[in-house]
Simulated scan of single mutants.
Amino acid sequence: MKSIRRWLMSALAACLVAFGCGIGPQVFAASTQANQPKAIYKVDTKEKVVALTFDISWGNKVPEPVLNVLKQQNVKKATFFLSGPWTLHHPEIAKKIKDMGYEIGNHGNLHKDFSNYPDSWIREQVALSEKSIYQVTGVKTKLIRTPNGDFNPRVLRCLNNMGYTVIQWNTDSLDWKNPGVQNIVSRVTKRAVPGDIILMHASDSSKQIVEALPQIITQLRNQGYQFVTVSELLAGANVSSNVR
């Protein structure tokens, strides 16, 4: 009797191990994946809409000419990600962005990779830039593009817990490399897809964007695209997100 009982206990243990190894990790992996915070690169839509986005963290020579181009081209929807120090140093330009009706997002305070620092530092930096932007423009930011686009799952989780949606890009103009006006234009207009988030810069480091931007706008319109803010893009279609 004891030997039968012992055999049954061994068999039961073997079954539990087998099912535990076969099922447990898959369920945990699915749960982890479902709950993993994500950054947004584009939205899935058949409508020909794109979001033009501009990061600004330095200088006052390029931002206003970029705004002038948008006005001349009658582009009423765009999203600007502003750093805290730049906003405080150039409040008149930041206010102009707001007054022209463009969306404003957060681009952090110090231009350093968030993944190299603890959550406490990230929260402090984002709070500082949020305060600066609000002080100058009255905008309480909810979208953030991290400096250098740097993040990892921990950073995303921290920012999500602060109430922020992390915005990346699907098409990178590489305008900050100043590769030539036509290279910038070609890169954007050939890569753009419906629901795209397009990365450009209105910092002084982007020396060719002012000349490239009118061509980008005209060619995208000729392809049938309309321009919306990032928030409008997110509200109108399914989100494509990823952790890279």
Rank of each mutant, 00 (worst) to 15 (best):
R6G: 06
M9R: 11
S10N: 12
L12F: 08
A13R: 00
C15T: 11
V17T: 09
G20Q: 14
G20S: 12
P25V: 08
A30P: 00
S31V: 15
Q36M: 15
Q36E: 12
K42D: 07
L52F: 05
P63T: 07
P63G: 09
N68W: 00
K71C: 00
N74Q: 09
K77W: 02
A78F: 12
A78S: 07
A78I: 07
L88Q: 13
L88H: 09
P91N: 11
K95R: 10
K95F: 01
K96P: 00
K98A: 14
D99P: 02
G101M: 03
G105F: 02
H107N: 06
P118Y: 05
S120W: 06
I122L: 14
R123K: 15
Q125N: 14
T137A: 00
K140G: 01
K140W: 01
K142I: 00
K142L: 03
I144Y: 07
R145C: 00
P147V: 10
R157C: 03
C158N: 11
G163F: 07
Y164D: 01
V166S: 10
I167M: 04
W169F: 13
S173A: 14
I197W: 10
D204A: 15
S205I: 04
I209M: 13
E211W: 02
L213I: 07
Q215S: 15
T218G: 04
L220V: 03
N222Q: 15
Q226D: 04
T229G: 13
S231N: 05
S231V: 06
E232H: 11
G236F: 12
V243H: 04
R244I: 08
R244M: 10
